[in-house]
């Protein structure tokens, strides 16, 4: 088991998900942005602009590598080739943090490009822990595992998501990435209380926080159905939850995720500044 206290060396300050269109702006006018997160899968080519930009950014900023394709929850096991590719990137870059999702995205070698949900059962727990161990061994470091946005429930689930994550962290030594927007989205979609979720969350394991925007729809019964779209500003109730969470746990590295309809740099930097203002109110 790896020591989760070494999980993450990002500063307790705002970061943003890096987009190539912001390369000039982030290097010349970072504003409140103190670190950057990249999606591992976008930087697994052999060369060219993406890797050159990443090398330049890594000289200026702590970098968090966020995997979106390891499919830690997959029934069929991890793809060893993909894990090896990610390990090579992590070896080369030595990022301040590596994180993945409590989700699956690959089945029968087909990659479905979405973070798909898991039933919270003993069998799933055993499998996810085995895969987290496998990833941590390959990367030779503890990882952070992120709570998902969910849209539905599994009748077969036996335990709460917070309990499930606590078990994974306890058994594997991994840290946790607390996505506060996902907490709000899932709680709304599943009719639960986001504050109760945060109260039950193993906060001592949190190495990083994510904030992002969501869309609002409704299901066929008229119930609110929030979609984790990462395509707009963080919603006000999510900012409130975030402030409450870090008031309880202390400041944490906080990422603004904005992946679709990517805004101009000023808009993204303003979100980071909002996080910075909230972080400043929390004693270290």
């Amino acid at each position: 088991m790896l020591d989760s206290t070494r999980t993450c060396t990002l500063p307790d300050a705002p970061g943003v998900g890096f987009k190539a269109c912001h390369f000039e702006a982030v290097t010349t006018a970072p504003g409140a942005v103190r670190w950057l997160e990249i999606h591992a899968e976008n930087y697994l080519g052999d060369g060219g602009r993406p890797l050159a930009q990443l090398a330049a950014l890594a000289e200026r900023f702590p970098v968090s590598v966020h995997g979106v394709g390891l499919s830690v929850g997959a029934e069929r096991g991890l793809d060893p080739d993909h894990l090896a590719r990610v390990a090579r990137l992590v070896d080369r870059l030595r990022p301040a943090s590596f994180s993945e999702h409590l989700a699956w995205s690959t089945h029968d070698a087909a990659f479905l490009n979405d973070l798909l949900p898991l039933p919270y059962t003993e069998a799933t727990l055993d499998r996810v822990c085995a895969h987290v161990d496998q990833v941590q061994t390959a990367l030779n470091r503890p990882i952070l595992l992120e709570n998902p946005s969910t849209y539905l429930a599994f009748a077969e689930s036996e335990m709460a998501e917070t309990e499930f994550l606590r078990e994974i962290a306890g058994r594997t030594g991994c840290g946790l990435l607390l996505d506060v927007n996902n907490v709000f989205v899932s709680a709304t979609n599943l009719g639960t209380d986001p504050r109760a979720y945060l109260a039950a969350f193993p906060m001592e394991r949190v190495g990083e926080i994510h904030l992002g925007g969501h869309d609002t729809q409704s299901d066929e019964h008229g119930a609110a159905l929030l979609i984790d779209s990462h395509g707009r500003e963080v919603a006000d109730p999510v900012w409130t939850l975030y402030a409450e969470a870090i008031a309880a746990v202390g400041p944490r590295p906080t990422l603004i995720e904005w992946d679709t309809d990517v805004p101009d740099w000023a808009t993204l930097a303003a979100e980071a500044a909002r996080a910075e203002a909230i972080l400043a109110q929390v004693p270290a």
Binding site: L112, N113, D114, L116, P117, Y151, L152, A153, F154, A155, E156, N189, L190, G191, T192, Q217, D219, E220, H221, A223, L225, I227
Partner: peptide
């Protein structure tokens, strides 16, 4: 076995995943 919070069939909630997968690809 996939439901909404009231235990009803997931219906449009499952369609969110359907749409995410196809739209992103």
């Amino acid at each position: 076995g996939l439901t909404d919070p009231a235990g009803r069939p997931a219906g449009r909630r499952f369609d969110v995943y359907r749409n995410n997968v196809v739209a992103s690809l």
